[in-house]
Design a protein around this nucleic acid. Structure first.
Lengths: 206, 206
DNA sequence: TTATGATTCAAACGGTCGTTTGGTTTCCCT
DNA sequence: AGGGAAACCAAACGACCGTTTGAATCATAA
């Protein structure tokens, strides 16, 4: 991650992802971060302006791609003659699953995402809402068309819960460590399947 | 919460619960905390020794009762002639549901619990494991008896995921705010029902 | 009333934080 | 080769952190 053939900005982003996942945003100091990335302390402020903005860029690097994949998958689903609620959910969940299986830090980033959910950071939430809120909106519209009995507010709330549960489930938050690295992919896929069934039932409720 | 008829220790614990839920453990400073509790800055170190120990006591105040309720419920289930996996899950989940419906800060505390999961704090995990690990062990034994095909490690891992999902689901982590306070109880009960079904399927898998 | 221990208080301590500065080095283009 | 922008660096700044101190205040029992 900190190999010399990566640029300073890339090394900082990589180290930030690791340390934010491990220690949280407030808990990761720029001194430890820059030491991990093998760059000068001032490099973060030079290249990113501030620590807050570095946090933003850590998200942008991954979420641009994730959002695009989700919207593509949704479009593909909607082009089919008949599609189910489960199909829409899969369009939302599978790209996240793919991200966790990414070789270079995808799983780490999902843990950072889970942090963001837990931290309730107003500034960060605003950034995510402004930059990726439209994805949530598209999916809300798709879900809403399948679930006419739900009003808009109720629908948004449930989608939000699902996004949170997904993030948490993918983030490996827990006390016990898993044993064989081999079956990790299968575990995650199973989790995604369960999640889709669970979320579909939750959305259809009432 | 900070009314003068509460003792200094109780006012500190109340303010700590609120601020830990809102800002995290590292994010809540003793200066803001003691100002909220309307006590002197030094009062935390005088009454609790350190900030770390204050964190412990915030958990102890709620978890002693929650753990007792869970073990009682488990015992009641096991005394029945025939009981299902869902019954055991209900013994684990319903006491947590009751806690969130508690009038004086129960819902706030569950958000603190969710923080603990997200923060991966080693010191705190050790404290929780040492003081409340036996509850998890009891439930693991009960689940294990129903699921002989799972080895111990796999079983612990799944229980851990369930505990995390429960905490997260109960903690109202999400972007969208819920509308009417009236239906909050019903929402939580629904969530608990879904969670039980979801977790039962997850445990039985493979 | 007075002595004693518990509690509260303002103030300060040492340390770490994010950020800024100003000088040095590196890189690239003419 | 030379000049100017970009990148890097050590050092320091002010702010805030958890904790400690020692004196002031309160409560209580002799």
């Amino acid at each position: 991650m900190n190999s010399p053939h990566f640029s300073t900005k890339e090394r900082i982003l990589g180290a930030a992802e690791e340390l934010f996942a491990r220690n949280g945003f407030a808990g990761a100091s720029l001194r430890e971060l820059t030491a991990t990335a093998k760059v000068n302390l001032a490099a973060v402020n030079y290249h990113f302006g501030s620590k807050d903005n570095l946090v933003n860029e850590v998200f942008r690097r991954r979420l641009d791609e994730l959002s695009a994949h989700r919207l593509e998958a949704l479009k593909a689903v909607q082009s089919k003659p008949d599609f189910t609620l489960e199909d829409i959910l899969a369009a939302f969940i599978h790209p996240a699953l793919l991200l966790t299986l990414d070789k270079s830090g995808g799983a780490t980033f999902v843990r950072v995402l889970a942090r963001a959910y837990a931290e309730h950071n107003e500034r960060l939430r605003k950034f995510l809402s402004e930059n990726y809120g439209h994805v949530l909106k598209e999916f809300a519209a798709a879900f809403g068309a399948q679930l006419p009995h739900l009003d808009k507010e109720e629908l948004y709330w449930r989608i939000d819960i699902i996004a949170g549960a997904l993030t948490y489930a993918m983030a490996d938050f827990g006390v016990i460590k898993r044993r064989a690295a081999m079956s990790e992919k299968i575990h995650r896929e199973r989790a995604a399947e369960h999640l889709i069934r669970f979320a579909a039932a939750g959305l259809r409720a009432e």
